[in-house]
Nucleic acid binder design. Structure first.
Lengths: 209, 209
DNA sequence: TAGATTGTTAATCGATTAACAATC
DNA sequence: TAGATTGTTAATCGATTAACAATC
């Protein structure tokens, strides 16, 4: 029997994103060492080699990694060598800001549909994306085969929205509502709770010295 | 010699925020067990007891924790039993959304000043907060003794803004610009990189089954 | 060959969980 | 007292770092 896939530390994945960006920005010769990449990303060289080695051997001892090759492989691993359609639920202040966020498009994330329940917004366009009524969420997500969503609705509505999304094939959610949502097995929900981030800062400032 | 303060796991602090909210929402009797709190927060009872015990003994064996007491202590530990003034740098889409974010005020964070470099915005008010030119950043932050800031400016400007803030007494920063900023020792910088979050989701969807 | 750098193993560090004696 | 639940210790699990043999 082949060896089982080694379990990869969860924190490796976001670091791959960081390496990838450094590689995209790196305009020097065709080869880069873990040491140089360490300098560019602030992670240790040992960690970089370890992280990369989870996915195979792409380096050459004594030389380093071929930049284009490594970049391509990381893009494949992360699944960002393509465009992803994303549904945005909630077109209030935060939702509208996310719709305009340039970084998403740059990294290949396309907000393909936006939803709200505010009659005044429905039918209007934001950044060329029409705002639809939230009752159309199921239909549109299913039709467009959208697998990824961002949630920027009030806490009270978030769980209902999540349930609807999961029922219609969305399996990955970035949630800004301050709840601990119930997901499911083959489902990934990342929660960003902005107040909690500030509370971490408050604690830092508040610590006895 | 007294025993040194035990090193507290970094991940304890955001969990305290979660416990705290559950306690605020908890309207039952005056006492709560780690088991009940576990049910409300989704963390294990053992972890909850462990987390709380880092800061002293507030529970009664056989009974549980007095809700009001525990809540008060957590607020103290987190340093959120007060209002914190926050500077917002960058009043674009994201910045404006953060200025309107209700969760901040609810949790005691007050955006006391906002800055941008767009002539069209300067002098206008957003949610009753006047937008100032970024060249006033040093002066205002120093005058108002602001210790906490949120950064929502483009990547190219972020490091410069951070340097200015640190030079003027701000020691805790929530940074939305997609850079790995250089901070300093007595400084806390939390980075939220929205594209990286979506890349984590992309990787999840892309994983071989 | 000599020098450089990878990939990998073992050691270390840190966080979580399980178990239970102490306590009310 | 009997039952319940804390606080704490030891065991487990997971992630990072250091070191170096293998390799170009």
């Amino acid at each position: 029997m082949e060896s089982l896939r080694p379990k990869i530390s969860r924190s490796v994945i976001p670091r791959l994103s960081v390496y990838c960006r450094a590689l995209v920005a790196y305009k020097d010769s065709g080869v880069i060492s873990s040491d140089k990449l360490s300098e560019l990303t602030g992670r240790t060289a040992a960690q970089i080699r370890r992280d990369i080695a989870y996915f195979g051997q792409f380096g050459t001892p004594g030389k380093g990694y071929v930049v284009e090759e490594l970049k391509k492989r990381i893009l494949e691993i992360l699944g960002i060598n393509r465009i992803w359609d994303v549904a945005l639920v909630g077109a209030g202040n935060l939702g509208a800001a996310l719709l305009s966020y340039k970084g998403f498009k740059e990294q290949g994330f396309n907000i393909a549909a936006a939803f709200d329940n505010d009659r005044n917004k429905i039918g209007k366009k934001l950044r060329n994306v029409p705002i639809r009524h939230i009752k159309e969420l199921s239909r549109v997500v299913k039709n467009k085969k959208i697998q990824m969503a961002i949630i920027a609705v009030p806490a009270e509505e978030a769980q209902k929205v999540i349930d609807t999304l999961l029922k219609n094939g969305v399996r990955a959610i970035l949630n800004f509502a301050p709840i601990r949502p119930a997901g499911g097995a083959s489902t990934e929900i990342i929660n960003i709770d902005l107040s909690i981030e500030l509370e971490k800062l408050a604690h830092f400032l508040n610590r006895p010295k």
